[in-house]
Design a protein around this nucleic acid. Structure first.
Lengths: 214, 214
DNA sequence: GCGAACATACCGACCGTATGGTATGTATCC
DNA sequence: GGATACATACCATACGGTCGGTATGTTCGC
């Protein structure tokens, strides 16, 4: 791990380590519940490094939300749910994929920006807006397939593709809240099954008789 | 405002004032983001009063969750959505009622226990469990009507009444997260419309053509 | 029915520590 | 040698929590 350069301004490794620490720690302890010292310790850097890269804790929050947006965008772009030929199948595959990645500890699969937005929406509008950009930016990636599915299936709807795309995120975020409260990931999967069923009913697709588990 | 008595140990008024302050302040600033001094100032009491009634900040969190559970239970028990004769209509009226009370500022209609659970689920299991009791206790109040509706409409389902009841809470909690992120209450109403549509499709009820606004 | 003994509700000063943030020094790269 | 990437030491304050005190009940013997 060499030091950074000017012509390759990926900053030092401390910045990335701090962002990764923020991603992991804030998901478990919340934004206010995570101290700058916590982050430095987890990242294995000093406070000097922290305030060299971020001029305040709030700015780290914004950077962490943006980092989350970038990394998850890349992750979902590479995911296999884009493969099906029929648009509706891609949408259903998306939900199935979201369900399939609900594994491990709660703080490993829950959403950083959903957690932060729910906590600091009123006290830190800048962080909130960065979280919103991540959530609604991700929702927007679903609109194309939903629109195509609506045309394909000749759906004359009361609702828009944008609205349904946002609703998928509502269910996912709510699923995380219930899973956290009940301390049980199965609560999240359960609601994604309802979301799958809603989509099939909306588009006149046969509803699966048995939910495949594991 | 008289002092308390032994046979009517409703404690002093400071306790209630602190619980009300917690309800309002934590919804806006989160649990970690709210200090004991904040609560005392909002409640108009001193720190001495705070630690007389609650032995720690965490215990106040638990008491606030229980207070929320009690007051919301009473509120929903008195609400008008129980009136319809057909069970399914009561369920749909519940969703419509939840939609109708999404008015005013975000911190006025969002859920205290959802906010707290999402924030401190890992750092304070006792608070988390109190939040869970509130959320799942409320969900349980819907099970009877859903079960009756399933029998009435002869629904041979892949899912249980309990699961669907929990899903309504998933959508409501998720709706609050998106509304907070987007700083727009309409985002919450939009998802409740999708929930209404899901229920109607599930039970074979005609889907309303136009969503009544306001 | 009255006063001693006790319990409850609340006040406000104080404490030790954790917190976000700063100032300065130093090694490295171009 | 100048900009970048850190490290170290430090600061002011905000934080959760403690403690002694007071005022207002309540209980109960007599």
């Amino acid at each position: 791990m060499t030091r950074p350069t000017k012509h390759q301004p990926e900053r030092g490794e401390a910045r990335e380590r701090l962002l990764a620490a923020a991603r992991d720690t804030i998901r478990a302890k919340g934004f206010s519940g995570t101290s700058v010292d916590d982050l430095c310790q987890v990242a294995g850097v000093t406070k000097g490094a922290f305030f060299h890269h971020f001029k305040s804790k709030e700015e780290l929050g914004i950077a962490a939300a943006n980092f989350w947006a970038e990394t998850t965008a890349a992750f979902f772009a590479r995911a296999p749910y884009h493969a099906p030929i029929k648009p509706l199948d891609r949408v259903l595959a998306y939900v199935a994929f979201r369900r399939s990645i609900i594994v491990g500890g709660l703080s490993e699969f829950t959403c950083l920006v959903g957690t932060m937005a729910g906590e600091v929406y009123a006290t830190s509008p800048a962080v909130r807006d960065a979280c919103a950009a991540s959530i609604f930016g991700h929702a927007a990636t679903l609109v194309g397939d939903i629109e195509a599915a609506m045309q394909n299936n000749r759906i004359d709807a009361n609702w828009t593709a944008q609205s349904l795309a946002r609703h998928t995120q509502t269910v996912i975020q709510g699923a995380f809240v219930l899973a956290k409260a009940g301390n049980d990931a199965e609560l999240a999967r359960e609601s994604l099954d309802h979301l799958d069923r809603y989509l099939r009913l909306l588009f006149g697709e046969p509803v699966r008789e048995v939910t495949s588990d594991a």
